[in-house]
Amino acid sequence: MTTADEDAFYVLTGLLLTPAQFPSVLADDYPAACGALALEPWEAGYGLVLGQDAAGARWTLVTHDAALVGCAVAAWDCGLEYDLDPPERTVVATRAGWPLALAVQAPGVPAPHDPEGADGPLLAPPDPGAWGPAQRRMGADDVGRDWHAWRGSTDAGVRFAAPGSGPGHEGVARVLREAAAYLGDPPPPGRVRSAPAGDGARTVRADGPGWSLVARTDDIAFVLLDEEPGQVLPVGRGPSLPGLLEGLDRLARENG
C-alpha cells in the first residue's frame, strides 16, 4: 500500500489463518490462534500479511480476504510473482510485530525492528533456544514438511527418541489415547488437520495439551511432547494406528 512514501507498507509474506490452515506457532487450534491475535474465530478465516513500514518497523495486517492471501501464497509457492496488496477496506486489524521470524527485509528501509509506541501486545517469534508448546508445534511442522527425510532417517536406524519410545512409551500411549478420544468428542476446529500427501495418502496433523502428532495415512506417525525437549518419537503402524489415522483424516475433512 503506497499512498505516500511515509505511509508505505512493504509486504514480505502472507499467511493463512483459517480452520484448515493457520500458523501453528500461535496455538494448538484455530480459535486459540485467533485469540492470540485478539481476533474472533470467524469461520471463513483471515489472511495475515507481514511487512515493514517506511521506518522499517514490523507489522502484521489482518485481512478478511483470506482467498486473496491464499492466491498469493500459492503463486509464491510455484515461483510466480504476485503483488499482494489487500484493499484497505478488507483490513480488519493491524498488529505490531510478526508472529514468525523472517529472513528477508524490504529493500531501501531500515532493518526490521519493533515499532515504537504501538498499542496492545507485541507479536514476536518464539525463542529458538527454548522448548515449549510453540517450539513443539514448529517441530511438528518441520517433520510434516520434510517427511521423507525424517522417514528415511528412521529407516536408516537413527534414533530420534530415548529407548522405550513407540507404543510402549508412556507419553506416546497418552497421545494415542487422547487422539483417539477426538473421534468420539471432536475438538475445536484446527486441532486436527489433513492435507494431500501424494500417492493417494494424506498427511494428518493433530495437536493436544502438551503434544503434537504428525503422520501419513499410509505410513507411521511421529510424536513430539512438551516434556521431552527436542525429541521426535516414531510410532510404528501396529494394529491400531491405521484406523486411528483414517478416523482423524475423516474428522479433519468433515470439520474443515
Score class of each variant (00 low, 15 high):
residue 71 C to T: 14
residue 90 T to W: 10
residue 81 E to I: 06
residue 74 A to F: 07
residue 84 L to Y: 02
residue 97 G to Y: 14
residue 57 A to D: 07
residue 111 A to G: 01
residue 105 Q to E: 10
residue 83 D to A: 15
residue 55 A to Q: 09
residue 102 L to E: 01
residue 65 D to I: 05
residue 57 A to T: 06
residue 105 Q to Y: 06
residue 115 P to Y: 08
residue 103 A to V: 11
residue 96 A to I: 10
residue 89 R to L: 11
residue 70 G to A: 15
residue 61 L to D: 00
residue 82 Y to C: 11
residue 63 T to N: 03
residue 84 L to H: 04
residue 74 A to Q: 15
residue 77 D to S: 12
residue 58 R to N: 04
residue 78 C to D: 15
residue 77 D to T: 03
residue 92 V to E: 03
residue 64 H to F: 12
residue 78 C to I: 05
residue 110 P to S: 01
residue 70 G to L: 08
residue 67 A to N: 15
residue 76 W to R: 02
residue 84 L to S: 02
residue 72 A to D: 12
residue 65 D to S: 11
residue 110 P to A: 00
residue 73 V to A: 12
residue 70 G to H: 12
residue 111 A to N: 05
residue 56 G to M: 01
residue 104 V to A: 07
residue 75 A to G: 07
residue 73 V to G: 03
residue 97 G to R: 02
residue 95 R to Y: 06
residue 109 V to G: 00
residue 57 A to R: 03
residue 59 W to A: 01
residue 75 A to E: 06
residue 58 R to C: 03
residue 68 L to G: 09
residue 114 D to P: 14
residue 81 E to W: 06
residue 103 A to D: 13
residue 82 Y to E: 14
residue 101 A to H: 15
residue 75 A to V: 10
residue 104 V to C: 06
residue 69 V to H: 09
residue 91 V to R: 06
residue 68 L to S: 06
residue 87 P to N: 05
residue 64 H to P: 03
residue 109 V to W: 15
residue 77 D to Q: 11
residue 57 A to C: 14
residue 80 L to K: 10
residue 84 L to Q: 00
residue 91 V to I: 14
residue 74 A to C: 05
residue 59 W to S: 01
residue 74 A to Y: 04
residue 79 G to S: 13
residue 60 T to G: 07
residue 61 L to Q: 07
residue 102 L to W: 12
residue 61 L to C: 02
residue 56 G to R: 04
residue 109 V to E: 04
residue 76 W to N: 03
residue 87 P to Y: 08
residue 71 C to K: 14
residue 97 G to V: 12
residue 80 L to V: 00
residue 87 P to K: 09
residue 106 A to M: 04
residue 99 P to M: 12
residue 100 L to G: 07
residue 60 T to M: 13
residue 114 D to Q: 13
residue 117 G to D: 13
residue 67 A to I: 05
residue 85 D to G: 09
residue 70 G to T: 03
residue 59 W to N: 05
residue 101 A to D: 06
residue 100 L to R: 04
residue 63 T to R: 05
residue 78 C to L: 13
residue 63 T to L: 09
residue 57 A to G: 10
residue 98 W to Q: 05
residue 106 A to V: 01
residue 91 V to K: 05
residue 112 P to V: 01
residue 114 D to H: 15
residue 110 P to E: 05
residue 69 V to L: 04
residue 66 A to W: 10
residue 108 G to I: 05
residue 106 A to Q: 06
residue 112 P to R: 05
residue 75 A to K: 01
residue 96 A to L: 02
residue 106 A to K: 04
residue 108 G to P: 00
residue 63 T to G: 06
residue 62 V to H: 02
residue 91 V to L: 15
residue 82 Y to I: 08
residue 105 Q to L: 01
residue 106 A to I: 02
residue 81 E to V: 08
residue 113 H to G: 06
residue 96 A to Y: 03
residue 66 A to C: 14
residue 99 P to A: 09
residue 78 C to Y: 15
residue 57 A to H: 13
residue 99 P to Q: 09
residue 93 A to Y: 08
residue 117 G to N: 02
residue 70 G to D: 09
residue 90 T to C: 09
residue 83 D to T: 08
residue 72 A to F: 04
residue 95 R to I: 13
residue 95 R to A: 14
residue 70 G to V: 00
residue 65 D to E: 14
residue 69 V to E: 10
residue 75 A to F: 00
residue 98 W to D: 01
residue 112 P to S: 02
residue 117 G to A: 08
residue 75 A to D: 11
residue 82 Y to A: 14
residue 105 Q to H: 08
residue 75 A to H: 09
residue 115 P to M: 01
residue 76 W to T: 02
residue 95 R to G: 01
residue 111 A to I: 04
residue 94 T to L: 06
